[in-house]
Design a binder for these strands. Structure first.
Lengths: 191, 191
DNA sequence: GGGCTAAGTAAGCAATGTCAACATCAGGGA
DNA sequence: TCCCTGATGTTGACATTGCTTACTTAGCCC
């Protein structure tokens, strides 16, 4: 009863509890604050500071979870993409993630993220690597790095534009279609 | 002395003054707040509320200025792109804008922007149209809309990734090179 | 049992967005 | 000329937030 008990003065595993309630609030659309998270967790307003240096540290931890989930979404269920349409599905999944968990996506990106040894950077690098591998396997003679950057950029840009309402679509289906179209359109420009 | 006088109780043209000092602070890297802007403009903390419904309205006005400038950057100096490399320069200019005025770029994007009749949306549409026109002229038989979405998405995604430090480069030159490479790489995938 | 220390609390500060009530001024109709 | 009205600014206040400093509690090891 040392790590999971939650009675009395000591909470048991406040850090995990804070992370999960913060994530819930984020997904629930509530504009979360450190204090609100603490309140929700039934703990004093300053308790989180024992586990996170500041608000940014909490967000960073959430972002890391987010990157793990996104990576799982992209790499987990499916095989490595073996064709251009497969790659398009990559982009579709990326955008779908952003639209399904908008607040998390904003926490993952949308911040300077200047910490040199930031875990977020490592997580993002993992994403980059996954993509570059897939692309290198698909187009061995092309510049895999440039392609990976392009693919990531395209998926990310579409995700942001749809998320911010700069591009609009009626349904998730339509978004997926448009993303597919865009991906295939640009990839067939070289005639 | 009705619109530019700034002595006494009435300011003359507070709205414009607020916008310009807010823009200066934004470009100066200061994390601006409504109160700080008012302070800088030498006016009481709540004076801005006579001209902007809330903080978001001020940001929205700044964003509109930003879109105008970005559009000028993209369309103003240069001819409509007549080749693929020209298009790549479009993307380069887009990313350069984002890196040159990061805070403004974040204000322009990076927010839900759910207001239906929002001027920001119209400004963004103008951008979309410019791009679609250019692409339609370049590739008359392709799906111009899908291409425009793809091009915008690619440029925007790269801008965001560089801005957030998810992609890194030593200099502006290097960023430009990478953007060009990415653009040309993805456009030549169809072998 | 007696400390040592990690984990949590209490109290407080400066800042922010926002609201309600009040002050000031400019311009038009009497 | 005078006063009234509406736009523009100001004062004062409230709730909330991030964060710091100092204090308290309780589990663990000897």
């Amino acid at each position: 009863m040392s790590t999971s008990g939650k009675s009395g003065y000591h909470h048991g595993d406040l850090r995990a509890a804070l992370l999960s309630t913060a994530m819930e609030m984020l997904e629930g659309g509530e504009p979360f604050s450190l204090r609100a998270v603490a309140r929700q967790a039934g703990v004093s307003p300053t308790a989180p500071y024992r586990h996170f240096r500041d608000r940014d540290a909490l967000e960073s931890a959430l972002a890391v979870e987010g990157f793990r989930d996104l990576l799982a979404d992209l790499g987990g269920g499916r095989d490595l993409p073996a064709s251009l349409p497969d790659l398009a599905e990559f982009a579709v999944a990326y955008v779908a993630f952003a639209l399904r968990r908008p607040a998390l996506f904003r926490v993952m990106f949308g911040k300077p993220c200047d910490d040199a040894g930031d875990e977020r950077v490592k997580a993002a690098d993992a994403l980059h690597r996954l993509l570059a591998d897939a692309l290198h396997r698909l187009f061995p003679d092309a510049d895999a790095s440039a392609l990976a950057v392009a693919g990531w950029g395209l998926a990310h840009g579409l995700a942001c534009l749809y998320l911010d309402g700069k591009l609009q679509a009626a349904s998730g289906e339509e978004v997926a279609d448009r993303v597919r179209d865009a991906f295939l359109a640009i990839a067939s420009v070289g005639s």
